[in-house]
Design a protein around this nucleic acid. Structure first.
Length: 313
DNA sequence: AATGAGGTCAACCGCCTAGTA
DNA sequence: ATACTAGGCGGTTGACCTCAT
């Protein structure tokens, strides 16, 4: 039941609080439909509502907006939330931006009431997304992080599918398929390899992408040496931030991709001509990738925001 | 039918930031 | 440089609902 009392966020002496009545909803809807919301703080007076501007804004955003989806979350949406939360943490507004028609409040409520419990029941810490391991079984590195052996030989109770999980990397099923436990490659610190390959772009250092797909091709090189092999990795991802606008480029949002390369024994420049036989590759960002011999065991890793490199284990 | 526990979710609170005077 | 204001955000609350006893 609405309570009348003073409110400290606006100048009105008396504002209603609590649930909105259908009449109030209608007043707000009509006002915004006719005039737009403009200044939220002035809406209550103009629209004849005994509410504060903040309350009007919240009601509109969370309930009255015509583009809201409503209804329960799909499995796909749940997956997006979990993946995004692994990268973004409790940044509900950022997470909600990945899901048209959903509000931050809705996502937050769904997380707190459902997903959190589901993760816990699966033995995962909802904050870190890492397995919850009994203290007696946990092994930690010198830096205090949970140990996750690259060779998959860990004898702890950690399920193998989690061994490569990095809180900063969205390790999708497809990535897992390409780099299963025990193989030589892994991608760490997701944002650096990707962002650093956009050498001509200025990207924020924030965690701002979700890896969707990672494909690998072998022997796609076009040199005359029969023993030469090359391996290309194309990573598709969704940017959580619009690409900074530049004079020469249109703003791009949504799905993007970049390509990294391992090339056997050849420290040569990577260019599109050497991969003429592979039309699946996206060469937009090829020029900034780093080439390394591939007979050793490497991790795709970033030294810094500016440098992509393959590191030997 | 009554009651209490637990879950859901709309709404509020308080803090932070950006813009402006 | 400072004060003030509006808007945005995450954390929290509490009314309401469902279900088990």
């Amino acid at each position: 039941m609405p309570i009348e009392m003073g409110h400290n966020c606006c100048s009105k002496q008396k504002v209603k609080r609590g649930l909105w009545s259908p009449e109030e909803d209608e007043k707000l809807m009509n006002h915004i439909h006719n005039y737009g919301h403009g200044s939220w703080s002035s809406i209550p007076t103009i629209a004849g509502l005994e509410r504060c501007g903040k309350s009007c804004r919240l009601r509109w955003i969370n309930y009255l907006r015509p583009d809201l989806k409503r209804g329960s979350f799909s499995e796909q949406e749940e997956r997006i939330i979990i993946d995004a939360h692994r990268v973004l943490g409790n940044r509900w507004a950022q997470i909600a931006k990945q899901m048209p028609g959903r509000t931050d409040n809705e996502v937050k409520n769904f997380w707190n009431s459902c997903i959190k419990k589901k993760l816990i029941s699966q033995g995962l810490d909802p904050n870190t997304h890492n397995p919850i391991i009994p203290a007696s079984d946990a092994k930690y590195n010198h830096d205090g992080r949970l140990s996750s052996s690259i060779d998959g030989s860990s004898s702890s109770t950690v399920p193998t599918s989690y061994l490569y999980q990095n809180p900063n990397l969205l390790w999708t099923d497809h990535l897992q398929e390409q780099y299963p436990t025990g193989t030589q490659a892994s991608i760490e610190k997701y944002e650096n390899p990707i962002i650093s390959s956009f050498s001509h772009h200025s990207y924020p250092s924030e965690l701002d992408i979700i890896i969707q797909n990672c494909k690998k091709w072998d022997t796609v090189g076009g040199t005359s040496e029969s023993s030469t092999t090359a391996e290309a990795v194309k990573v598709e991802y969704i940017s959580l931030e619009p690409e900074p606008e530049e004079e020469s480029r249109e703003v791009q949002t949504g799905k993007r991709s970049c390509t990294a390369l391992k090339y056997n024994g050849q420290q040569t420049s990577m260019d599109a001509s050497s991969f003429g036989s592979c039309n699946l590759l996206d060469f937009d960002f090829v020029e900034s990738t780093v080439l390394v011999p591939c007979e050793m065991d490497y991790h795709l890793k970033a030294n810094s925001m500016d440098q992509l490199a393959w590191h030997r284990e």
